[in-house]
Design a protein around this nucleic acid. Sequence first.
DNA 1: TATTAATCAATAATGATTATAAATCAATAA
DNA 2: TTATTGATTTATAATCATTATTGATTAATA
Lengths: 160, 160
Amino acid sequence: MTAARSAKRMEAALRAAGYRLTPQRAAILAYLAATGSHPSARQVYDEVRQTYPGLSLATVYNTLGILVKSGLLKVLEFELDNRYETNLTPHINLICTRCGKIQDLVAPLPISAEHLADKVGFQVLDYRMEYYGLCPDCQGRIKNRQSATKINKGEQYEQS
Amino acid sequence: MTAARSAKRMEAALRAAGYRLTPQRAAILAYLAATGSHPSARQVYDEVRQTYPGLSLATVYNTLGILVKSGLLKVLEFELDNRYETNLTPHINLICTRCGKIQDLVAPLPISAEHLADKVGFQVLDYRMEYYGLCPDCQGRIKNRQSATKINKGEQYEQS
DNA sequence: TATTAATCAATAATGATTATAAATCAATAA
DNA sequence: TTATTGATTTATAATCATTATTGATTAATA
Ligand SMILES: [Mn+2]
Ligand SMILES: [Mn+2]
Ligand SMILES: [Zn+2]
Ligand SMILES: [Zn+2]
């Protein structure tokens, strides 16, 4: 929706990086530009297939990998189902351990790259800031339905 | 080394959680309490086997899982090779994308759990704060040896 | 159109983690 | 001491997201 994530801009950046814009890639880009979520590769596959039925999962992985290499996308690595970050502006992700939803929270990073370089000697290239817990919806659900199931970070998310 | 990570305290906590303290578990606990690093399961296996040769990898995974469930250890999930966090006090991890080393940095978290609960309605249960980049050693190596190899977050770490 | 490189998609391979099941161990009672 | 019981360990197989491979197809360029 924003300029930074517009499909047109991503298409141009892809071409600038020397890649061709195929119909499959355009469809994936359009989905990524439109979504406000942090989808997994499988989610991208399932969603884009609704408008582009012939798409293969391998192409999804291939395209996502290209986008990451080109700096248009970030990966949040998890043990199962990596998630893809389309919002490249500095922010914190609030990750619900019950439903898997990831919500952006605009907030300053705790320490500046300059400080880390000067005081600790660490050269910052990237970051990942996450809080885990329960989103408003899931808090309500638990309060009401008094879920007997244990909610752990390692647990498989339920389908929304 | 600290009181929080002392082997004795971890042994007591394991027993309190209803688990037996076997020699294998004691050996793993001793290693975890002594190390200041953020080892992978394989690293724990390789290290502890030097003092306990019969140890199996399955037992390592089993024990690490028990420790996580008991709150004595945290997992940092990555696409390949999860890492285990023994320092349970709030801090930020500085992760070198070249050698894989993880260095603790004591610093306040960017936003308090209270603020998130009040203003955003998100109930914080855990967190993960990471900077990725180059540790001092690897900056030096790159400057000197002018590494032609690209350094990406997704790349396999070289062995130290 | 011919040439060439890039891409697609089906399939196989990879590899960390988890599940399974038989063997072993430890604690307790008879 | 010996038996019983259940937890634990171990070796092994299974799982499954991701990556690599490969032959066929497509696009770019002249
Ligand atoms: Mn985000
Ligand atoms: Mn740490
Ligand atoms: Zn939720
Ligand atoms: Zn390093």
